[in-house]
Every structure is written in C-alpha cells, then in structure tokens.
Amino acid sequence: MATTACFIIVSRNDIPIYEAEVGSAAKREDAAQLHQFILHAALDIVQDLAWTTSAMYLKAVDRFNDLVVSAYVTAETHTRLMLLHDSRNDDGIKSFFQEVHELYIKTLLNPTYLPGSRITSSHFDTKVRALARKYL
C-alpha cells in the first residue's frame, strides 16, 4: 500500500533544519507545500502539549483529512521532530522517532555542524530514509 509521509525537524528557533518526503505514494505537485502547511499549523499544538507531559513522544497531535501529525520533542534543545503520515503504525513511528533522535544527537556532536543550522549531511539523509522504509 502506498503511504504518504513527510518528515521535518524544526529547531528551537522555529526554523526547519531538515525536510524529507519519505512516503512511497506518487507525488502530487502541490503535496510538498500542503504537507509543510499542515506541519506548520501543528507547531502551536506541539508547543502547548510539550509542557503537559514529560514524555518526548507526543503521539498524534493533529489531523487533516486522513493525514495525521505525530511529534517528538527532544529534551536537550527543544528541537521538534514532526512526522505527517497516513499510516496507523504507532509503535513503528515511536521507534522511528527514537532512532532519528539518536542520529540527530550524533549530528550535534559533529564539531563542524553548527547547532540550529540546516542539516546538509548526505549521510544523515540516507539514514533517515532507510529508517523510514524500515518503520513506516
């Protein structure tokens, strides 16, 4: 079954530092903008929810038609990992977030990466896409 999924990482200053379309569905031309728009709209909800729980994984925070937004907020820098998806695989999404979080920490430890700047590493990109195939 073809799935739609869009993954972004938003820095603490509300700047998107990584974006990837990781779904297997055929791309519609305006899909990317639509996905960004939905994720952007969900940021406010994430902001409110993040302080009500000590868990990093916030589960589904918002929905738009058949698309669901799941979020994961890291403790160290309040970086938000957000995933837009139409599958209902809760465990997979949780594992996906946790592993991407590890990758993100590794990126932060790289001295040539400036925290809060765009993640341009192709290594990171490949790994994220592999994780998406594995879990989503």
Binding site: K106, L109, N110, P111, T112, Y113, T120, S121, H123
Partner: peptide
C-alpha cells in the same frame, strides 16, 4: 575523529 563528518565547505 569520532562523530566528525566533513561538510562540503571544508
């Protein structure tokens, strides 16, 4: 070099 990955600029 643990953690290090050189970006295109360096």
């Amino acid at each position: 070099v643990d953690f290090v990955e050189l970006p295109d600029t360096c």
